[in-house]
Amino acid sequence: MNAPVWLPIPPDEIDGLPEGPDYRFWDGGADGDQEFPGDPADCVLYVVPYMKRHPVKTRPLPGMRRLQVVQTLTAGVDDITPALAGLPPGVRLCNARGVHETSTAELALTLTLASLRGIPDFVRAQQHGHWQGDFRPALADRSVLVVGYGAIGAAVEDRLVPFEVARVARVARSERTTARGPVHPFTRLPALLPEADVVILCTPLDDTTRGLVDAAFLARMKDGALLVNVARGPVVDTAALLAEVSTGRLTAALDVTDPEPLPPAHPLWTAPGVLISPHVGGPSSAFLPRAKRLLADQLTRFVNREPLRNVVLTTGTADGP
């Protein structure tokens, strides 16, 4: 096999890559204008650069006429899927399931605890030298609803259990049973929302989840409840959320927003009871070793013509663009 494979991590830094492919490094460059490492038409497997702007990530795709696999280093693929429409049929899109669960679940718990215990207020008080005590809710004895119970949602529950929460309810697009209990369908949300003290969003963004958290969803949440979003910004109707947090009825902890990045003058920045982190669920020290292991395993499967992991869709089929 000596076909080019484009990697956003230098190949000599990835242990376990199989022999055979012609590995070429391309991450788009600091400004997104890095020259291609060869003719895109020759590339057979493209690993999408991580944490780059959408135009950078998709720039080579129109010329990749021999492409067989697109591998993202993100769990969500909503930004890449539309760019696959011009590719030949049979191209498999694979996501990075197994890479981000640990880091994203850790941040979901961090945001939950920080918001409940009032850490942002303490930080502001520290900046002014104020010793400001307060009586705040604990995570212990709270009821938590996890919306989107895939690998990340399950990892979030793993981290909730030691905190002695009263109950974890799980919701996903498909109803099923797990070792920890039932996973309810989205149709059960109206009944489950009023019971939750904390609602954690982990669902992928697609046509069924865009705007899922609208005014009606938020109105069903109990007074004083906390909404945590580590999914995608457009899962939440920003105007509807602002209306609720502005009254103080709900609070929110958001790692993702709509729009994103959040403009400096946007009212979410100063809305009461809102904690914002700049989409940092994935980028942590946990990312790189897991990403390298995924790539080594996936390339080994590709070279040996074994089934690939994490195939989300295949172009030219019913599930693809």
Rank of each mutant, 00 (worst) to 15 (best):
residue 2 N to G: 10
residue 314 T to C: 11
residue 85 A to F: 04
residue 279 H to G: 07
residue 150 G to D: 09
residue 215 A to D: 11
residue 49 P to A: 07
residue 241 L to T: 04
residue 273 G to T: 01
residue 32 G to P: 01
residue 150 G to M: 10
residue 108 A to P: 07
residue 230 V to W: 03
residue 99 V to N: 11
residue 47 V to S: 02
residue 146 V to N: 05
residue 319 D to T: 15
residue 277 S to A: 12
residue 117 R to A: 08
residue 86 G to I: 07
residue 183 V to H: 08
residue 17 L to F: 03
residue 126 Q to T: 14
residue 204 P to L: 07
residue 58 T to G: 08
residue 217 F to E: 12
residue 268 L to M: 01
residue 242 L to G: 03
residue 164 E to V: 09
residue 69 V to H: 06
residue 183 V to I: 13
residue 46 Y to G: 00
residue 312 V to Y: 03
residue 169 A to S: 14
residue 176 R to Y: 06
residue 280 V to S: 09
residue 74 T to R: 02
residue 229 N to M: 03
residue 162 P to V: 13
residue 106 E to K: 14
residue 286 A to L: 10
residue 44 V to F: 13
residue 185 P to G: 14
residue 279 H to S: 06
residue 264 P to K: 02
residue 296 A to E: 03
residue 42 D to L: 13
residue 103 S to F: 06
residue 73 L to Y: 08
residue 27 D to Q: 08
residue 244 E to F: 04
residue 204 P to F: 07
residue 283 P to I: 09
residue 73 L to T: 15
residue 107 L to H: 09
residue 81 T to A: 15
residue 18 P to Y: 05
residue 185 P to C: 12
residue 21 P to Q: 08
residue 318 A to G: 14
residue 43 C to W: 15
residue 230 V to R: 02
residue 103 S to A: 15
residue 76 G to Q: 04
residue 110 T to G: 12
residue 305 R to P: 03
residue 25 F to R: 13
residue 221 M to C: 11
residue 241 L to S: 01
residue 319 D to F: 06
residue 280 V to C: 10
residue 55 P to E: 15
residue 70 V to F: 02
residue 225 A to S: 08
residue 230 V to S: 04
residue 126 Q to K: 14
residue 123 V to M: 10
residue 229 N to P: 05
residue 164 E to H: 12
residue 250 L to V: 03
residue 82 P to E: 04
residue 70 V to K: 00
residue 90 G to T: 15
residue 197 D to E: 13
residue 80 I to F: 03
residue 183 V to L: 12
residue 171 V to F: 06
residue 186 F to L: 14
residue 290 R to L: 13
residue 91 V to M: 08
residue 126 Q to I: 14
residue 239 A to V: 11
residue 233 G to A: 03
residue 100 H to A: 12
residue 319 D to M: 15
residue 50 Y to G: 04
residue 172 A to L: 14
residue 308 L to K: 15
residue 213 V to R: 00
residue 157 E to D: 10
residue 263 P to K: 04
residue 199 V to K: 00
